[in-house]
Computed example of a mutant assay.
Amino acid sequence: MGDTTEDPFDGIPDDLTADLDRSEQTLSVRIERRTYNKPVTVIEGFDPDATDLKELASELKRAVGAGGTVDDGAIEVQGDHEERVGDLLADRGFRLV
Rank of each mutant, 00 (worst) to 15 (best):
M1L: 07
M1A: 05
M1D: 08
M1T: 05
G2N: 07
D3H: 09
T4M: 11
T4L: 12
T4A: 05
E6M: 08
D7Q: 08
P8E: 06
F9W: 15
F9P: 07
D10A: 04
G11N: 10
P13M: 00
P13C: 00
L16C: 05
T17C: 02
A18E: 05
A18S: 04
A18Q: 01
A18Y: 00
D19N: 04
D21A: 02
R22Y: 03
E24R: 08
E24S: 08
Q25W: 06
T26L: 04
T26P: 01
L27P: 01
L27C: 01
S28M: 00
V29M: 00
V29Q: 00
R30L: 00
R30V: 00
R30Y: 03
R30C: 00
I31G: 02
E32K: 05
R34F: 01
T35L: 00
T35N: 10
N37H: 04
K38P: 09
P39D: 03
P39M: 07
T41Q: 03
V42L: 08
I43V: 10
G45D: 13
G45K: 09
G45R: 03
G45F: 04
F46L: 07
D47T: 15
D47M: 06
D47C: 10
A50E: 14
A50Q: 13
T51R: 12
L53E: 15
L53C: 13
K54I: 02
K54G: 10
E55L: 12
E55F: 07
L56Y: 11
L56E: 13
A57R: 14
S58A: 13
S58L: 08
E59P: 07
L60P: 12
L60N: 11
K61W: 07
K61P: 06
R62M: 06
R62P: 03
G67H: 11
G68F: 03
G68I: 01
T69D: 15
V70D: 15
V70N: 04
V70A: 03
D71K: 10
D71G: 12
G73Y: 12
A74S: 06
E76T: 01
V77M: 09
V77Y: 04
V77G: 05
Q78G: 06
D80Q: 04
D80H: 10
H81I: 00
E82Y: 05
E82K: 13
E83T: 14
E83R: 15
E83M: 09
E83Q: 14
G86Q: 14
G86W: 15
G86T: 13
D87K: 11
D87Y: 10
L89R: 04
L89F: 07
D91L: 14
R92H: 06
G93F: 04
F94I: 15
F94Y: 15
L96G: 14
V97L: 03
